[in-house]
Design a protein around this nucleic acid. Structure first.
Length: 589
DNA sequence: CAGTGAGCGAGCTTCCGCTTGACTT
C-alpha cells in the first residue's frame, strides 16, 4: 500500500514524471540543494562554536565539511523525510552531473535513509528514458561526490581567505573568489586596452557609378595593385601592420578623387563564387542569452526569467544547460515540422548533429520547444499577445531549433571590379559585390536580419562605366568595446568559469565594482586598484584565466581515483598550502 | 569636571552552485 518515492530537483519535472510513472509512484522535488556549508556564523552548529574550524565550515582534520540544512530548506526536507520513512524504496533522480550527484548524496544523509537509495538518471523526460532508468538503478557515485566536495571547499577557501584582506583595503562592498576575481579582471583589462589604445586615421573612398539602366555605389578596393588599408591593418598602438596594404594619405585621397571624377572606367573583372549559409546551432543558456539580446533586446536576467515562465508552462525544455545536443525526440519533431511546411530540399537526408564543447557537463539537452511534436508559435496567440516577451522568446527558440535541422542556404556571391588606369596610382580598382541566394534552405524560416543587400548592375567584362561622383570619408580605428553583461557571460563560459545557473548572478555579485549601464560595463577605480595593486602582486593565481579549467582537471582526477576521499584531502592540503603562501607574501609585504 | 581618544573585544561578513517564488525598485 505504501509507494516508492522518486525525488527530482525541479518541481516542474514532477508533473511530467508523475504522468509517466502513474499512481504507483510518489514524485517529489528537492527544489535544488538541501544542504550546504553554514552560510554565516549564526548557522554554525553549537557543537563547533568553541572548536577550531576553517572558514566557518570545515574541520581541520581531513578537511571534513560541516553541513547544515539552511532554515528555508527545512520544510522541504521534513516533507521528504516523512514520505521517505513510509516508502519501500527511494529513487534519487537528481540531474546527471556533479551537482546532481551531490544533491543525491545530501538527500541520502538529510533524509536519514536506512536503506540504500536507488540512484537513477535520465537527461530527457520521455517515457522510455524514465522507465529505462527505473529498471536500471545505480548507487550514488562517491567519486563524483568527493569531486563536488573538493570544488565546494576550494571555493570557500579562496573566497574566505582572500576577501577579508581585500575588504581591509577596499571597504565593505567588495569581495573576490574563483569566479568573481577573473570576471572583474576581464572588465579591468578591457578598460586598460581602451585607455592605451592609439587611434589611427584611414580613408574610405566610394564612387557613384552609372550604366545605361542603373546607378550604384562602388568602393575603392586597391591602387598600385595593393589593397587599401582599413581599420584591420593597424594594431592597437597605431602601427601599420600589413606591408602589402596601401596606406593612403589625405593628399593621395584628393588626387584619387580627382582622377575618379575625370576618368572613364572599365569593368575589369567579374567573379562568381558559390556561397553557402550554415543553419544556426541549437540553443544553450549562453547562446539563448546572446540571441535574445541581439534580436529582442533582452538583458540576460530578463531572458532567463521569461524562459523560466515558458519552462514552467511546459512549453520549452530546461533553460539552464551547457549542451546543444538535441534528443531524438526533438530531431524527429523538427523534421516532421520541416517536411510538413517546406519542400523536400529543406530536409537534410540525415539529421544535423551538433557536438558539445569539452567542458560541457550536458546533464540537460539543448533549449528547445518541449514535447514530441512542437507547438507552433502562432498556436500560442490565444495565450500570449503577439508583442509579449513570452511569445517573442518562444518564437525565437522555435525558429532556431527547427532551423538547426534544415539544409544549408545556397547562393552565389558576385563581385565586379571596375578599373581606371593612372600614371601615378597604376590601376585604381573599385569594387561592388553582393550575394544572391539561389536556394533559401533554413533561411526560408529565419533570415539574418543584419544582412544588407544591394542590387548589382548587369555588367560584362570590358563594359564602360560612368562615374558620376566620388566621395571620401576620414575614418579612425576604434578601441575594443567594453563588455556587456551578455558578452562577459560568453567570455566566462569560454574560459570555463561559472555555470549556466550562475551566469546572471555572477554579474549581479560584482555590480558594486562597475558603473552599470548593462550594455557597457565600466570598472570603478576600486576594481582597477583591486586587480592591479592587490590581486596581481599577491594573489595572481586566483585571477588566472585558466584557474577554473585547471581545477576541473584536478576534480576529474579525484573522480577517477581509486580512493576519492584520499585524493580530495590531498588536493585540498596542497591548495591550502598554496593559499597560505600567498597570504604570507601579502602579510609580509 | 567634561570631553576626547586609545585600546580592547565581540560580532559580523566574505565563496560557488542548485532550485523557485517572494520581495523590492
Amino acid at each position: 500500500m505504501s509507494k516508492p518515492l522518486v525525488i527530482v530537483e525541479s518541481p516542474t519535472k514532477v508533473k511530467t514524471i508523475s504522468k509517466i510513472l502513474g499512481s504507483e509512484y510518489i514524485v517529489k522535488s528537492s527544489v535544488g540543494h538541501i544542504r550546504d556549508l553554514p552560510r554565516n556564523t549564526k548557522s554554525i552548529p553549537a557543537e563547533y562554536k568553541d572548536k577550531e574550524i576553517y572558514w566557518g565550515a570545515v574541520k581541520p582534520k581531513d578537511f571534513e565539511n560541516i553541513y547544515v540544512i539552511p532554515e528555508d530548506r527545512k520544510k522541504v526536507v521534513k516533507e521528504l523525510r516523512d514520505l521517505a520513512d513510509k516508502a519501500p524504496e527511494v529513487y534519487l533522480a537528481t540531474d546527471d552531473d556533479r551537482e546532481g550527484e551531490a544533491i543525491a548524496y545530501h538527500l541520502k544523509e538529510a533524509l536519514e535513509l536506512k536503506k540504500e537509495p536507488k540512484r537513477i538518471k535520465f537527461n530527457e523526460i520521455t517515457e522510455p528514458a524514465v522507465l529505462n532508468a527505473i529498471e536500471n538503478p545505480e548507487i550514488i557515485d562517491i567519486g563524483k561526490f568527493k569531486s563536488y566536495e573538493a570544488r565546494r571547499t576550494l571555493d570557500r577557501m579562496i573566497g574566505y581567505e582572500i576577501s577579508p584582506k581585500l575588504r581591509d583595503l577596499g571597504g565593505a562592498f567588495i569581495s573576490t573568489g574563483r569566479v568573481q576575481g577573473p570576471a572583474i579582471r576581464l572588465i579591468v583589462e578591457k578598460e586598460e586596452e581602451r585607455l592605451s589604445f592609439v587611434k589611427s586615421k584611414y580613408f574610405e573612398i566610394d564612387a557613384t557609378c552609372k550604366t545605361s539602366d542603373i546607378e550604384f555605389l562602388a568602393d575603392l578596393k586597391s591602387v598600385k595593385g595593393n589593397k587599401i588599408a582599413s581599420s584591420k591593418d593597424f594594431d592597437k598602438n597605431g602601427k601599420k601592420i600589413n606591408k602589402d596594404r596601401e596606406y593612403i594619405t589625405e593628399k593621395d585621397c584628393n588626387q584619387i578623387l580627382d582622377i575618379l571624377n575625370n576618368g572613364s572606367a572599365k569593368t575589369s573583372k567579374i567573379k562568381e563564387t558559390p556561397r553557402s549559409g550554415k543553419p544556426p546551432k541549437p540553443l544553450k543558456t549562453t547562446s539563448l542569452q546572446s540571441s535574445a539580446r541581439n534580436n529582442l533586446g533582452f538583458q540576460p536576467r530578463k531572458t532567463m526569467s521569461v524562459a523560466q515562465k515558458l519552462y514552467q508552462e511546459g512549453l520549452i525544455t530546461y533553460m539552464r544547460t551547457d549542451s546543444i545536443r538535441l534528443s531524438e525526440t526533438a530531431i524527429k519533431a523538427s523534421r516532421e515540422y520541416i517536411s510538413e511546411n517546406f519542400t523536400n530540399d529543406h530536409l537534410p537526408s540525415e539529421p544535423n548533429f551538433y557536438g558539445d564543447s569539452k567542458n560541457a557537463q550536458a546533464a540537460h539537452e539543448a533549449i528547445r520547444p518541449s514535447g514530441d511534436s512542437f507547438t507552433e508559435p502562432k498556436e500560442l496567440l490565444g495565450k500570449y499577445k503577439e508583442d509579449s516577451d513570452e511569445f517573442k522568446l518562444y518564437s525565437l527558440i522555435f525558429n532556431i531549433t527547427v532551423a538547426s535541422q534544415m539544409t544549408e542556404a545556397k547562393g552565389i556571391t558576385k563581385s565586379i571590379e571596375i578599373e581606371i588606369q593612372d600614371d601615378t596610382f597604376g590601376p585604381i580598382v573599385l569594387g561592388i559585390s553582393g550575394t544572391t541566394w539561389t536556394f533559401g534552405g533554413y533561411r526560408d524560416l529565419i533570415k539574418d536580419l543584419s544582412e544588407k543587400s544591394q542590387e548589382l548592375p548587369d555588367l560584362k567584362e570590358g563594359d564602360l562605366v560612368n562615374i558620376i561622383s566620388s566621395n571620401s570619408e576620414e575614418k579612425f580605428t576604434t578601441p575594443p568595446n567594453r563588455y556587456s553583461s551578455t558578452s562577459l557571460i560568453n567570455k566566462l563560459e569560454e574560459l570555463g568559469i561559472g555555470r549556466p545557473s550562475t551566469y546572471v548572478s555572477i554579474i549581479e555579485s560584482i555590480t558594486s565594482v562597475f558603473i552599470n549601464s548593462e550594455s557597457s560595463l565600466k570598472p570603478r577605480i576600486l576594481a582597477i586598484a583591486m586587480i592591479n595593486n592587490f590581486m596581481k602582486p599577491y594573489f595572481d593565481l586566483y585571477i588566472d584565466y585558466e584557474f577554473s579549467k585547471l581545477m576541473e582537471d584536478e576534480l576529474d582526477k579525484i573522480l577517477e581515483s581509486k580512493n576519492p576521499e584520499e585524493a580530495k584531502i590531498k588536493f585540498l592540503e596542497e591548495s591550502y598550502e598554496k593559499i597560505k603562501k600567498h597570504i604570507e607574501g601579502y602579510e609580509n609585504a
